[in-house]
Design a protein around this nucleic acid. Sequence first.
DNA 1: CTGAAAGCGCTAACAT
DNA 2: ATGTTAGCGCTTTCAG
Lengths: 348, 348
Amino acid sequence: MVLTRRTTGHRPTLEDVARRSGVSRSTVSRVINAEPRVSAEVVDRVRQVIVELGYVPNQAARQLVTHRTGAVAVVAAQPENRLFLDPFFDLLLRGIRRELAGHGAQAVLLFLDDPDDYARVADYLGGGHVDGALLFSLRPGDRLHEMVDRIGLPAVFGGRPLLRDGDPERGGQAYVDGDNRGGARQAVQHLVSLGRSRIATVTGPYDQENSAADRLAGYRDVLPAASTDLIERADYTLRGGADAMAALLRRQPGLDAVFVASDLMASGALQTLRESGRRVPEDVAVVGFDDLAEIAESTDPPLTTVHQDVEEMGRLMARLLFDITQNPGAPTRSSVVVPTRLVLRESA
Amino acid sequence: MVLTRRTTGHRPTLEDVARRSGVSRSTVSRVINAEPRVSAEVVDRVRQVIVELGYVPNQAARQLVTHRTGAVAVVAAQPENRLFLDPFFDLLLRGIRRELAGHGAQAVLLFLDDPDDYARVADYLGGGHVDGALLFSLRPGDRLHEMVDRIGLPAVFGGRPLLRDGDPERGGQAYVDGDNRGGARQAVQHLVSLGRSRIATVTGPYDQENSAADRLAGYRDVLPAASTDLIERADYTLRGGADAMAALLRRQPGLDAVFVASDLMASGALQTLRESGRRVPEDVAVVGFDDLAEIAESTDPPLTTVHQDVEEMGRLMARLLFDITQNPGAPTRSSVVVPTRLVLRESA
DNA sequence: CTGAAAGCGCTAACAT
DNA sequence: ATGTTAGCGCTTTCAG
């Protein structure tokens, strides 16, 4: 067996390239970094030697002096094993990767799973492996916030951080979020405009997630006098949506519309409504939230829902991060809220 | 607004810690690296100063001399946007992360999406950001193989690389794979032992993926004389499985068993069988492959299928990588094949 | 058990 | 347009 280990001996350095091309290290460095004032002739010669030697710049050495890495961390606190199977996250990530790639930066994903992971990730983030971080913390008061704060790494959060009593105000922390409250308002207003009068809502875990809290707030904006009988909390799962719908029906058999705070839950709610013999939208109009194609287009009937441009949110996070790293002094334009729009299908 | 920028001024260095503790840089370095011969007293003092100053070692500087980063890349060529939603990959990744974490290494994920990504990822991998890489290339003859070969980075592949005509033999490339062929054999033998005589198979895209080719080979091992009428190729999707089953039924209405090369496809096949009025397993016995809990446990009837310990495969990949990095000279124990076992439920 | 000195591979003024 | 000179922040002999 032929061993074609390239690792043999020592990897060529700038010095080697310089010697072999008959120029100085600085010149080679200039060629590598595509600096303008180098004669075309020299550029060619050096380039050729680089190929001959299979030279690859040592990033550690470069980082040490430039303080730049060309990499951006995307950190996801991943409770249980969810999230990774989440189409929302998939889309968001695509947006992030695309925008980052446009800037020539490499996205590197880190997951926070076990409690022990926090220390290692903190070391990684603090160790200068990346120029900044895009963070998703799903738990309120997650250590993640405190962590990047302490490390002093430029960072942008996905989703407005949910503060709990006693948490310090995170003055400077930038985030990108969808317009959950405005979107919920659109949804409920649409139901009102349809002439519905007994409009219920299935909410997400509003004590745990801002998105859920904001969507409920949007409902209340439009229906400040709604009875608590019309509000049922669930957990953003299919099953939860189905059960919540059943509970609402029990309490308020006469309801004629429901705003369900996620498509997945709406899909469950639709099932319950069908089983209860109600027609959608004739008897009960249903509006969801998220507009995940996989779900909203294939429910029966197809779901009217609030659309968020998730890929764009990803891009924005990346863009915001670059803004921050590029002028570190400037007053942090910290929050970006991405508008939503109602997509009409057949459920309302 | 109070700006609590930690980034102010310069980050403390080893030098700063040394001065403030009244010892030399070397000593501080020893404390940080937990080297034995340092007096307990000094250790305490230095540790305290480290905390006071909020000192974090600069990894670039460290890497420059040690040639180690403590990070391992997990690279996934992600055709379309699949894979990210794949429970198989999710499990594999968990195994990888756990094993890596056990060695104190940080897993960083990189995705290959656009064609442009290859160059950037190659730079990243070659730039010394990581100590090694675990790679998943889903396309035959993917550039990924050639890439790591050239870079000379320790690497382990997930899944046996599929060589195409003209591809060079990848002598030294390590990989971890499930025992696709053996698993398929178990599945088909089980059907035979049930007394079934007209056993068909729905295969994966065997010209594109080794797993599919191997599973078909396993079927042929047991039934070398099977008519090609009993073999129908599909694409590992639900729809594909359903359609393939329909085609088989058309050609061989009397078949009494089918080995379907993935659970997802089997789920589709089950649907087709039901629609055709056949009972499972009475009329047609069905065996799947993968044993993905989400699918296999919730089909009707629950699926008898070939189980792979996917998380373990992930761990093995990581372990194999450490073997390689730890003695770079040794003859590469390059392949590990993880055994499978048949899980009996109700479909066969 | 601790310190002094050298150097990892690169970039960035500063000269020329 | 190119070369010279200093470091970047750390580890690692080698002395003591």
